[in-house]
Simulated assay, not measured.
Amino acid sequence: MMHMDAEVFEALVVDELDQLPDEMVEGLDNVVFVVEGRPEDGTLGLLGLYDGLALTERERYGMGELPDRIVVYREPHLARCADEAQLRDEVHTTLVHEIAHFYGIDDDRLHELGWA
């Protein structure tokens, strides 16, 4: 298991987010990115989570709505990766996966595309 403190991991996530294509992130309206240690159940199997209502499921959406959240879990990533290069790849994949859920792409389609 890799070791990396929370601040360094968060900076890595921000760096990977900054490297995503503009077309992918331009449409992210009212979305916050959060880094947490582990999922609520304490397991290490979940790398990220989209908490919100996908664009394809929204009938109305406007002012006053709480932001959707994309959560990246630090400890599961560190448990899965052997070095920083692998960690960056895994964080990148997690970000793409969770952003895809925002756009309404489900897990089956993500598997077909190689992002799950």
Rank of each mutant, 00 (worst) to 15 (best):
G45M: 08
L20G: 08
D22P: 00
R69A: 11
F33C: 09
D5Q: 03
E59R: 13
A100S: 15
L12T: 15
L110S: 04
W115D: 10
D51T: 10
P21V: 03
D29R: 13
F102W: 13
R74K: 07
R80D: 05
D18N: 15
C81M: 03
A54Y: 04
D41P: 00
P67F: 10
H77I: 09
R74N: 04
R58V: 10
V13K: 09
M1S: 15
P39C: 07
G64A: 06
G27Q: 10
V25F: 03
I105F: 00
H92T: 15
R38Y: 04
R58W: 11
L44I: 08
D107L: 02
A6V: 11
G64P: 04
P67S: 15
D22H: 08
P39T: 04
E57C: 06
G104E: 14
F9Y: 07
E90I: 09
L12A: 13
V96S: 07
A85F: 06
L47K: 00
H92S: 11
V35R: 14
E23C: 04
I105T: 09
T93S: 10
E40H: 00
R60A: 10
L17D: 14
L110N: 06
A79M: 09
A79G: 11
V91C: 05
D106M: 01
G37Y: 00
L28T: 06
E75R: 07
L53F: 02
A54P: 10
P67A: 15
R88C: 06
G104W: 08
V71G: 01
E75Y: 02
D18R: 14
F33A: 07
A116S: 12
